[in-house]
Amino acid sequence: MGYDLERFVGYVNEGLLCSICRDVLEDPLQAPCEHAFCTACIHGWLVHHSNCPEDRQVIDVSLLRPLYRYMKNDLNRLQLHCRNREYGCEMVCSLESIDRHERECEYSQIPCSNAGCTVQIERRNLDGHLAVCEFRSRECPNGCGYTILSAEDTQHNCVAELRTELELLRSEMICRVEEAKHEMESRLDSQRRHMVQKESILQNEIEELKSQMSRMMSDVRSLMAAERQHRQELEQAELEKRELMELLKGLQKDCRLTTTEGSRKSNFRPLTRLESVKRKPREVTVI
Rank of each mutant, 00 (worst) to 15 (best):
residue 137 S to R: 02
residue 46 L to Q: 01
residue 118 T to G: 09
residue 16 L to E: 02
residue 69 R to I: 02
residue 181 K to E: 13
residue 162 L to A: 13
residue 44 G to E: 12
residue 245 M to Q: 14
residue 5 L to F: 00
residue 224 M to Q: 01
residue 108 S to V: 11
residue 24 V to N: 01
residue 35 H to C: 04
residue 150 S to G: 02
residue 36 A to L: 06
residue 178 E to T: 12
residue 128 G to M: 05
residue 195 M to Y: 12
residue 37 F to Q: 06
residue 122 E to Y: 03
residue 71 M to H: 03
residue 187 R to L: 08
residue 178 E to C: 12
residue 89 C to I: 05
residue 192 R to W: 08
residue 181 K to R: 15
residue 72 K to G: 08
residue 127 D to N: 14
residue 286 V to K: 14
residue 30 Q to V: 03
residue 261 E to V: 10
residue 134 E to K: 15
residue 256 R to S: 13
residue 241 K to V: 09
residue 17 L to A: 00
residue 48 H to I: 08
residue 214 S to A: 15
residue 52 C to L: 11
residue 183 E to L: 15
residue 13 N to I: 07
residue 183 E to I: 10
residue 282 R to N: 01
residue 111 P to H: 08
residue 147 T to K: 13
residue 36 A to I: 04
residue 7 R to C: 02
residue 86 E to D: 14
residue 154 T to V: 14
residue 210 K to T: 14
residue 160 A to N: 09
residue 10 G to R: 07
residue 152 E to A: 09
residue 194 H to N: 05
residue 94 S to M: 05
residue 53 P to N: 07
residue 37 F to M: 03
residue 39 T to Y: 04
residue 161 E to K: 11
residue 175 C to F: 13
residue 151 A to E: 04
residue 239 L to V: 14
residue 126 L to R: 06
residue 172 E to C: 10
residue 153 D to A: 10
residue 42 I to H: 03
residue 53 P to Q: 08
residue 138 R to I: 00
residue 4 D to E: 14
residue 263 S to W: 00
residue 9 V to P: 03
residue 189 D to K: 05
residue 273 R to I: 06
residue 191 Q to P: 03
residue 118 T to I: 07
residue 287 I to L: 14
residue 193 R to W: 07
residue 233 E to S: 11
residue 219 D to Q: 15
residue 169 L to V: 09
residue 207 E to P: 02
residue 148 I to Y: 01
residue 218 S to W: 07
residue 185 E to D: 10
residue 245 M to P: 06
residue 157 N to I: 05
residue 210 K to S: 14
residue 129 H to C: 12
residue 213 M to H: 15
residue 32 P to M: 05
residue 180 A to M: 15
residue 134 E to A: 13
residue 160 A to F: 03
residue 8 F to M: 08
residue 53 P to R: 02
residue 159 V to E: 02
residue 139 E to V: 15
residue 120 Q to I: 00
residue 163 R to M: 02
residue 82 C to R: 09
residue 206 I to G: 13
residue 115 A to T: 06
residue 285 T to G: 06
residue 179 E to N: 15
residue 105 C to A: 14
residue 15 G to I: 01
